[in-house]
């Protein structure tokens, strides 16, 4: 591992269980992951300053009791939120798959401020979207085809092509139905904050506008219900035994998402400005 490669922080806590595959994905994308317990970061938030990328993994943080991500989100909003916000200021991309997405929403990291009246980013933004029980009220494990809006500002998904039939991502969650008032959805669309959608026929959890993932206004913080970290090798694809061997040359969609961010850190971050919102400073 190249010591100059970007350092990725993986944050775990009681009930987080997708930290290993997230770390493996960062390795595959050329980053150096290091996993830290939330407890250790709460004790010393300055540790976050040493990283170039952040991953908030999936799982069932604190049992997802009350609601998915609620308790961990509330804990983070009161403890390491300022350190995370500073990291975003520095241009650190953050990926939050599944429970990470739920936590990021509850912690006020996504989708960001409603308007300039909020004291953001000094304090976490108010949640304006929710991830509720799947429409069939059941946990579902399923691969889906996805679409990337061409105008997204999300640095993780921007410019990725997902037209090929094997461009799918796995999902495994019980509370992934994206819910938001129409006005919020329209605003997210207008600002390019819709980062990834289910194909209409694959919107199995009943998400509004088939939204599978969003980003914050900076495009750095990316939350999504699918698990790109579980599709970085072609043998993870559910139909790999069916496809022509030549398709094995294609880079799996999940890996491309991670590589996109690592490349961004290496090439684009320097000199970029991070206008995080109206009151950013």
């Amino acid at each position: 591992m190249n010591l100059n490669s970007p350092k990725a922080l993986i944050i775990t806590a009681p009930g987080i269980n997708c930290d290993l595959e997230l770390a493996n994905s960062f390795v595959a994308a050329g980053a150096r992951p290091h996993t830290e317990l939330l407890q250790a970061l709460v004790r010393d938030p300055s540790r976050i300053a040493g990283y170039d990328l952040i991953g908030l993994p999936g799982g069932f943080s604190f049992g997802d009791d009350v609601a998915a991500g609620r308790i961990m989100g509330a804990l983070m909003a009161r403890s390491i939120y300022p350190a995370l916000r500073d990291a975003i200021h520095r241009g650190v991309p953050m990926i939050c798959p599944c429970n990470g997405f739920q936590i990021a929403v509850q912690a006020g990291l996504l989708p960001g401020p409603v308007d300039a009246s909020e004291d953001w980013p000094s304090t976490a933004a108010h949640a304006t979207v929710a991830l509720s029980s799947n429409s069939m009220a059941r946990f579902v494990d399923r691969w889906t085809r996805v679409e990337i809006p061409s105008d997204t500002v999300c640095i993780w998904t921007k410019g990725l092509d997902c037209q090929k039939p094997d461009d799918m991502l796995p999902n495994a969650h019980g509370e992934g139905r994206f819910v938001a008032p129409q006005s919020v959805v329209e605003r997210l669309e207008a600002t390019g904050q819709i980062a990834i959608r289910y194909r209409a026929c694959d919107n199995f959890n009943g998400s509004v506008s088939a939204i599978a993932g969003i980003c914050d206004p900076s495009g750095l913080v990316f939350g999504l219900m699918p698990h790109p970290e579980r599709y970085t090798r072609w043998t993870q694809h559910p139909q790999w035994t069916r496809v022509d061997a030549s398709a094995r040359q294609n880079e799996p969609l999940g890996l491309r998402i991670f590589k996109n961010a690592v490349r961004w850190v290496r090439e684009d971050r320097r000199g970029a400005h991070f206008e995080l919102g109206a009151s950013a400073g």
Binding site: E21, D141, A172, Q236, Q239
Partner: peptide, 23 residues
């Protein structure tokens, strides 16, 4: 039943419990 279980967690699956077109 199968779809209620997370058979992808840990990212290790190669042959999943459901296979073929549309799993």
């Amino acid at each position: 039943i199968i779809r209620q279980y997370d058979h992808e967690v840990q990212g290790t699956s190669v042959v999943k419990p459901l296979v073929g077109i549309g799993d």
